[in-house]
Design a protein around this nucleic acid. Structure first.
Lengths: 216, 216
DNA sequence: GTCTATAGAATGATAGAC
DNA sequence: GTCTATCATTCTATAGAC
């Protein structure tokens, strides 16, 4: 590696891989190696030799499957954001807006906890993407944000939630999910599902508190 | 710079500099240049030439004032964490635990908003520090966490707050403050103080929601 | 303390054999 | 599709003049 050994603790990652069969075996190995290197050291401190070594290949093998180191990062962040969005769209609608919002928060948070290593790369390394690739990721992020925003405004319109500032509350809810990749460990106290349920409660508490402020 | 142009939007930074008079004029210029480069591109994508050019100096000038690029980062993160901790310790005690916790959250959040560029470096670039320097930062972080933890447990013991899980709630509150450096802009809708007040309400809502869960 | 010049090492990506 | 070898560049840090 180019940089000195990272001061951060090692990241354990036994989450299921996100890559589908569209990538061959070698490409999937490079993506998995890339995720672990990028998460531990960051994109710019990771060399192409780090990635290929993690995949058990020679330095030149990377360019058979990807056009550049940046393209490895792009595929990782695109796959991660797509997976996170898919999990949201699979949350069943519910006649009770509070139950629906709880389900969305629990799904978003538990996904980020289970895939915290890949999520760390997806969230923190976007600055290394080209402008074109960055715009693709921004599009996926907008769709995730909209899912939360729609659920919250629907509940407000239906009278199930008090009149909260949807934009600010959605941003705060997303912060809970995103920031956990900074500290979450799979061997810690909470399973991804437990943390998801816990944060779903906290999110509903924020909705109530934001409403009481506006009513002031 | 070593990397291509960042895909992220430019970061506007008109916050007051954090460096005291212990640093000379040239050293302060290098720290300010380092903050902006590290925030925009990350530590490893920033070259020593980027930093010295931002300070209007030659590449060799950096090593007159700092022993390495990493030491520039260390001084930035140390000063940032110290300033953030100082703001917390200056929050006046209050006989009402809820008022005290509100004040702590408002101070923590508004500091991170006002100094969001320096805070971004302090929060996201710690992996580039040496182990020794990293431990110094961890010590400062523990002290900040303890301030929140003590305020919350004191309120629970005094009966002002219901019986919440202090560790988890403190982590969630810190996430609100830390994650805003990922999206906050000084030219946006909320001033640092407005955002601080708003998030203080959200934090108290989380305390209430966490308590109701435990009582279930 | 500031500069110009450069040493010494590492990096992203490519050439060409098998 | 994988490899070894290497090119061309870039980077951190230092040497030494002023």
């Amino acid at each position: 590696m180019g940089a000195q050994r990272s001061a951060l603790p090692d990241l354990v990652d036994d989450s299921p891989a996100l890559w589908d069969e569209g990538f061959g075996k070698a490409a999937r190995g490079l993506l998995t190696g890339g995720v672990r290197c990028f998460a531990a050291q960051g994109f710019h401190a990771t060399t192409t030799r780090d990635i290929t070594a993690a995949a058990g290949l020679s330095p030149a093998a990377l360019y058979v499957h990807f056009s550049s180191k940046e393209e490895v990062l792009f595929e990782i962040t695109r796959t991660g954001h797509k997976s996170s969005l898919d999990v949201l769209t699979l949350v069943p609608p519910d006649t009770d807006p509070a139950t629906h919002l709880r389900g969305l928060v629990a799904a978003f948070v538990s996904w980020h906890a289970r895939h915290h290593v890949a999520a760390r790369v997806s969230q923190y390394e976007l600055g290394a993407l080209t402008s074109e690739h960055y715009e693709v990721i921004v599009g996926l992020r907008r769709r995730s944000t909209s899912v939360f925003h729609d659920a919250l405004t629907h509940g407000i319109t239906a009278g199930a939630f008090p009149d909260a500032d949807a934009h600010r509350v959605v941003r705060a809810i997303l912060s809970l999910g995103v920031d956990l990749v900074r500290w979450y460990r799979l061997d810690g106290a909470d399973s991804p599902e437990e943390l998801g349920e816990y944060y779903a409660d906290l999110a509903l508490g924020m909705v109530a508190a934001a409403a009481s402020r506006r009513a002031r």
